[in-house]
Amino acid sequence: MIYLSLALTLLLTLSSCTNASMQPLPEINNTILKSSTNNREPSLGIKWLASLALYNGKERIELTNLLSRTRVPLPGLNSQDSQPISVSLSADGQRLALIRQRGNRTELLLYRRNFGTLQLLEINPAGIPKKVSIDATGKLLAVQVSRDGYWEVDLLRLPN
């Protein structure tokens, strides 16, 4: 009886866990993503991928169109005097939320691709942002913030 109940428990545990086999996307992995070294911090939209990539010893934000397998220019986003820390992309690839280090300041920003504008977002009460996540609609941000020695998460509603 004990063996039977153990077997049943094992069966129930295994039935909630399926062994999955993902299919790599070699046409993207072996072309566009292989061309830059030390790619990190992926953020997926629908048909879009944002990431941080290292070029000539400096990181920059990159956006890849997964349908055309091409890099998309981000005018005004990457600058020589700043270092990106975290990036997150809306589903349509139009809005990028980012955190960057510029001098001794750590800034939270929103980049709108359709306008090519970069907007500094205020963190109130003041804190140091570390990670950012934008929701699929591009209207809500979750930001991990260091404040008075504690890690907190702030939610920020963004204007249209």
């Binding site: 299919q23 996307l25 790619n39 990190r40 629908i46 991928l49």
Partner: peptide
């Protein structure tokens, strides 16, 4: 991805990191 059709993974091995996409 928002529609759960794809997953991007930052993978590490041999001292480098790389992003790979999966269906």
């Amino acid at each position: 991805s928002p529609d759960a059709r794809q997953l991007a993974m930052e993978l590490t091995g041999k001292g480098t990191s790389r992003i790979e996409l999966f269906n």
